[in-house]
Amino acid sequence: MSKNCSIKLENVQQIIDDQEKQQINNRYQGEFYSKNQKLYLSYQDDAEGLDGSQTIIKIDPERERVLLLRQEPAAMKQDFVTGKKQEGYFKTAYGEIKMAVKTKRLEMEISDNAGLIRINYQVFLGGELNAEHHLKINYKIIKENS
């Protein structure tokens, strides 16, 4: 059974060659559900250039892993596991770009009605360190769907 939830994403990113940090804050209405002992957040991403892409955040508390998947037209895959460098990709109008993320820290505070996930990670493009990110995902159950 899915539940309606509010989702708040805060991402502070610093491009390696740039001294300036960029902060992105977005709020979404989405769904929260559980399947095979994993938790899922699902929402339409209406941020600029994403055109309502369906986004799914798969949370695996037991394995301390978070998987971020976004579908077309701005498809992306980022896989977060503490201390590991995981291959991923994102697609643009110009084609697919291979990337990797190395998770420096992953913290989860999960309950039945709310959750907070903090991920500090590095993005590598073409094998080179491109950016540092501090991502915070906050969700709160609004009501159960019948």
Rank of each mutant, 00 (worst) to 15 (best):
N36A: 05
V81F: 12
Q29R: 14
I15A: 12
T92M: 06
F90Q: 05
I137V: 15
D112E: 12
M108A: 11
D112G: 04
G49F: 11
I57D: 03
M76A: 07
K84R: 13
N26M: 14
K140S: 15
I110D: 11
A100V: 00
K8F: 09
D46Y: 15
Q22C: 06
E109W: 07
R27H: 12
Q86Y: 00
M99V: 01
Q71A: 07
I119D: 05
I57W: 06
K3T: 04
D45L: 07
I117C: 09
N36H: 05
N145G: 02
V66C: 08
K136L: 15
P73W: 06
Q78P: 00
L135G: 02
L39T: 03
E107H: 11
Q71L: 01
Q19W: 02
V101Y: 01
Y121S: 03
K91R: 07
S6Q: 03
S6E: 07
K104P: 01
R65Y: 11
D51F: 15
L41D: 02
E20N: 10
A131G: 14
I16C: 06
I142P: 01
T55G: 08
Y28Q: 08
D18K: 11
T92A: 06
Y33T: 01
G95P: 04
S42P: 01
K77N: 02
T92S: 13
G127T: 05
R63F: 13
Q37N: 10
C5Y: 02
F32L: 09
N25R: 15
K8H: 12
E64M: 15
R65C: 14
D112A: 11
Q19Y: 04
H133K: 08
R105Y: 13
I59R: 06
C5G: 01
E10A: 09
Y43A: 02
N11M: 09
P73H: 07
D46K: 14
K104H: 13
E144N: 13
K38M: 13
G49Q: 14
M1E: 14
V12M: 14
K140H: 15
L135P: 02
L67V: 14
D17H: 08
V12C: 11
I56V: 14
N145R: 12
Q37C: 01
G83F: 15
N113D: 08
L135S: 01
M76E: 09
I119H: 01
Y89S: 02
N11I: 13
G88E: 07
Q71G: 01
L106D: 12
I16M: 09
T92W: 03
D45I: 09
R70Y: 04
T82W: 04
I137L: 14
N113F: 06
G30C: 04
I59Q: 06
Q86D: 06
N130S: 15
T103R: 04
L9D: 01
Q19G: 07
E48Y: 12
L69N: 04
E72L: 02
N26V: 06
